[in-house]
């Protein structure tokens, strides 16, 4: 019985043949930005350590942080944190069993993904032009 029909059974569709949709993109993005935000904890601890080590160490940190590659990391980390928070709120809504209808799911997945970029842009605009 256990061996019956185990050959040539249909497999559940995996990433390679699953059609991309907003929900899938938002879900994968949530995981990616979660890892990115974890990198941010390292930057935060480095910042606090440099603060404690004195003005010279702090100047070294800010020198690296304001270089082009430092800014790439900081923009990436801030986007990770903000986008992860937005898609995290999406997950809270899905957790209560709401938003699974195809239209609503696609719409909110798209809105959340776009909102992550918009809020990150807003944060940096406020930070740089305050």
């Amino acid at each position: 019985m256990a061996q019956a029909g185990t050959r040539n059974r249909p497999l559940s569709p995996h990433l390679q043949i699953w059609g991309w949709g907003p929900g899938m993109a938002s879900s994968i993005l949530h995981r990616v930005t979660g890892v990115g935000a974890t990198v941010g904890i390292g930057v935060l601890l480095w910042w606090l350590g440099a603060l404690l080590a004195g003005p010279e160490a702090y100047a070294t940190f800010t020198g690296l942080a304001t270089s082009w590659y430092g800014l790439v990391v900081l923009v990436g980390v801030s986007w990770s944190v903000i986008a992860h928070a937005v898609t995290g709120i999406r997950h809270f809504v899905l957790d209560i069993g709401a938003g699974y209808e195809l239209d609503a799911n696609n719409r909110w997945a798209t809105i959340c993904t776009v909102l992550g970029f918009v809020l990150t842009g807003l944060f940096w605009a406020l930070l740089l032009y305050r």
Partner: peptide, 18 residues
């Protein structure tokens, strides 16, 4: 390690260690 280091930094900064 991260949590211990972070809390150590905050406490030292708050108590005027730097």
């Amino acid at each position: 390690a991260g949590a211990a280091f972070g809390l150590f930094c905050v406490i030292r900064l708050a108590l005027g260690g730097a």
